[in-house]
Amino acid sequence: MKTLLSRPWIWSFIAALSVWLATIAFTGGASTVGLSQAALTFAAFSVLVGIGQMFVITLGPGNIDLSVPATMTLAGTVSLKYMDGQSGLILHGLAIAVGVGVCVGMLNYALIKALRIPPIIATLSMSFIVQSAAIWTNRGLRIKPPQALADFTTQTSFGIPNIALLALLISVAAWVLLHRTPYGRWIAAIGQSLPAARMAGIAVDGNRFVTYLLCAILAAVCGYLLACFSGGAALNMGSEYLLMSIAVVVIGGTAVAGGNSNVPGIWGASLFMFLVVSMLNTYGLGAGVRLMMTGAIIITVILLASGRTANLR
């Protein structure tokens, strides 16, 4: 129990569970299944972008990717436009989305490296360019996704949304990547001290480049799935994921200063972020009160989580 409590991610799960119980208690258990499935579905999207952001934040102070929402939008619009509702082109669409991610990731790191722009500015300017590209390709069209894909993203297997299962699979892969491979060690080393990592013979540029690439690809895949899930791409579909991707990483117990990250916390935090909003909606509070409550609850959770004893590995 004690070792469990010392895990940095446990608090986000405790928070999510209590909010879930509070909501269920209010409705008298009427919407348990619906609420849980919705929470899992929406959390899955946050998890996908959160994992990418987590890898970038692991790289240490100043590393952040603000181009996540624009990448989602562009990947969603371009791939949907290409597939044009034909189920035979689903994999082609996915490949196009991944391609969009690869391009954005490469350009992001090119700006950071070649022009020596701080990541926060580089990815922000990139996001404007990418968003403009999305506007240009979209031109206000609303194209339906292929039916098979729309079904997949909205249906469940064994009572669990397909999207959540997919996100779980990717989370496990991310965990393995972070904790069991040299790459995971290397980026954690870079996050703790870039000069020390360089002097230890770690290929710093290569690792940082791959990390920005990974983040952009995950954002692109998330955009592709979200566009299919919501029946078409919209120009503002990514906007809420800018802060969400950062918030779930931080609430999940990853060190903002880098070098120490964890994957499970992202799930707890993503579920929590969705459940808080739906709890306050269930209580029927006004928009202003709802936002204030959301802020207050997030602060409380962070305070509780940071009160834990320092967890040195």
Binding site: Q192, P195, G206
Partner: peptide, 28 residues
């Protein structure tokens, strides 16, 4: 030393004197 791609047979390795600055990873 490698910049972009990890190499299996590194040509050089380094022992830092200024261990705080470019030696240790203090979370580890």
């Amino acid at each position: 030393s490698p910049q972009w791609w990890p190499i299996r047979n590194p040509a050089v390795t380094f022992v830092a004197g200024d261990r705080r600055e470019n030696g240790i990873f203090d979370l580890w």
